[in-house]
C-alpha cells in the first residue's frame, strides 16, 4: 500500500540568540491511509514540532525545516515542504487538519464557534454563507454537540472544555481531510471527557476513513487507540512498531523504560515502578551519537561514536539502537 504521507529526513532547527536548537533530527516515517499512528515521547522530544514543521506552522523567521514530506492521495502527489505558504493553504485545513491540546486557547475568543467552522468551508469548498452554516450545524451534530442551532452563535468561552474540543474536531473534519493530526487533544480534559473524545475520534476516523496521527504521552491511550506507534526521543524517532508488537517486544531501551514506568493494577505495589535516570538531552548540541546514551543502561562504546541507523527488527518494526535487547548483547552488525 502506498503511504498517504511519507516523511523523509525531516530536520528542524531553531535559531536563537543562544545558538541553534536541534529540535527534530532526521525523522523518517510513513502514514498509511485509514490508520491511527500514535506518536509518544516526553515533553520536548519534538512531537509537536515535527507536525508543525510538516504544515509550515512554525515561526518563519527563526525556524529552518529541511527534508521531504510526500503527501499522496487521489490526484495529489506533492512534497509539502517544498510548497509556498499560499500553496500550502490549499492543503492545510482541507486535506490535512490539526487539533491542539488546549481548545480554549486554540479557538478565537472573539468570533462565534459557528463562524469558525463555516470559514473553513467557505475558504476550501467555496460554500456560500448559508450553505456553510447548514453544513456547520450538521458538523456540530456529528461531533455530539446538542442544540447546534443555539451553539452555532455561542462564543468559545461559553462552552465547557469537552465541548470546545468537540468544536475543534468539528472544525478539523469540516472539509473531510485525509489526515487528521491530533496534538495531545485529551491531555487538558478530565478522564470521563477524555474517553468520550477518544471514542468520538475513533468513530469519526472510521466513518470518514481518515488517517490519524495522535500525539500523546499517555501510553494507556495509545494501547486502546493506535494501530502503530512512533516513539520519539530527543528530536529523533527511536522506535516505530505496530502497537501490540511494541508493548510486547520493545526493542529500544527508551521504549522499554517508558513501558516500565506504567503503573498496572496487576502489579499492586509489589514491584517498584522503574524510572529512567537522568534528564533529557541538551538540544543545543548537534547530535553526533545516540541521544539517549547518557541515560541508557545498555550504553557501550559505539553508542558514543555514531548515530545508530534504523534497524529493521521485524516487518514494520524499526529501532535506532546498537544494542540487541532481545538477546541482551550488542547487535552483530556493530
Amino acid at each position: 500500500m502506498k503511504p498517504i504521507l511519507a516523511v523523509e529526513k525531516l530536520n528542524t532547527r531553531f535559531e536563537t540568540f543562544a545558538g541553534s536548537v536541534y529540535a527534530v533530527n532526521d525523522i523518517n516515517f510513513e502514514l498509511f491511509p485509514g490508520e491511527i499512528l500514535a506518536v509518544v515521547g516526553e515533553s520536548g522530544s519534538g512531537k509537536s514540532v515535527t507536525m508543525l514543521s510538516l504544515l509550515g506552522l512554525l515561526p518563519g523567521s527563526s525556524s529552518r525545516v529541511s527534508g521531504r514530506a510526500q503527501f499522496s492521495t487521489a490526484g495529489i502527489d506533492v512534497d509539502l515542504l517544498s510548497l509556498s505558504k499560499s500553496e500550502l493553504n490549499r492543503y492545510r485545513g482541507n486535506h490535512i487538519s490539526l487539533i491542539f491540546q488546549d481548545a480554549l486557547r486554540s479557538l478565537n475568543p472573539v468570533t462565534t464557534v459557528g463562524e469558525q467552522i463555516s470559514e473553513s468551508l467557505i475558504t476550501h469548498l467555496g460554500y456560500n454563507k448559508k450553505k456553510a452554516r447548514r453544513h456547520a450545524l450538521e458538523l456540530l451534530e456529528l461531533v455530539g454537540i446538542s442544540q447546534p442551532d443555539k451553539r452555532y452563535s455561542s462564543y468559545p468561552h461559553m462552552f465547557s472544555g469537552g465541548m470546545r474540543q468537540r468544536a475543534m474536531i468539528a472544525i478539523a473534519i469540516s472539509c473531510k481531510p485525509e489526515i487528521l493530526i491530533a496534538d495531545e487533544p485529551t491531555t487538558a480534559l478530565d478522564v470521563t471527557i477524555q474517553s468520550q473524545i477518544l471514542e468520538l475520534a475513533r468513530r469519526l476516523q472510521r466513518e470518514l476513513g481518515m488517517a490519524v496521527i495522535w500525539i500523546t504521552h499517555d501510553l494507556g491511550v495509545v494501547a486502546g487507540l493506535a494501530d502503530r506507534v512512533l516513539v520519539m526521543y530527543g528530536g529523533t524517532a527511536v522506535e516505530i512498531a505496530p502497537v501490540d508488537e511494541l508493548y510486547e517486544n520493545p526493542r529500544h531501551p527508551y521504549t522499554e523504560g517508558l513501558l516500565g514506568a506504567i503503573p498496572s493494577i496487576a502489579n499492586k505495589g509489589i514491584k517498584r515502578l522503574v524510572s529512567i535516570d537522568g534528564s533529557p538531552p541538551d538540544l543545543f548540541q548537534a547530535p553526533r551519537h545516540c541521544q539517549f546514551v547518557w541515560r541508557c543502561p545498555y550504553a557501550f562504546e559505539p553508542c558514543w561514536q555514531n548515530i545508530p541507523q534504523n534497524y529493521e527488527i521485524n516487518k514494520g518494526h524499526y529501532s535506532k539502537c546498537f544494542y540487541d535487547l532481545q538477546n541482551n548483547r550488542p547487535r552483530t552488525e556493530v
Binding site: 508543525l52 504544515l55 506552522l57 500550502l88 493553504n89 490549499r90 492543503y91 492545510r92 485545513g93 482541507n94 487538519s97 490539526l98 491542539f100 486554540s106 479557538l107 478565537n108 470559514e119 473553513s120 475558504t123 476550501h124 475543534m168 472544525i171
Partner: peptide, 8 residues
C-alpha cells in the same frame, strides 16, 4: 496557529 492550520 489554528487559523493558519485551517489554511485561511
Amino acid at each position: 496557529t489554528t487559523a493558519r492550520s485551517k489554511g485561511l
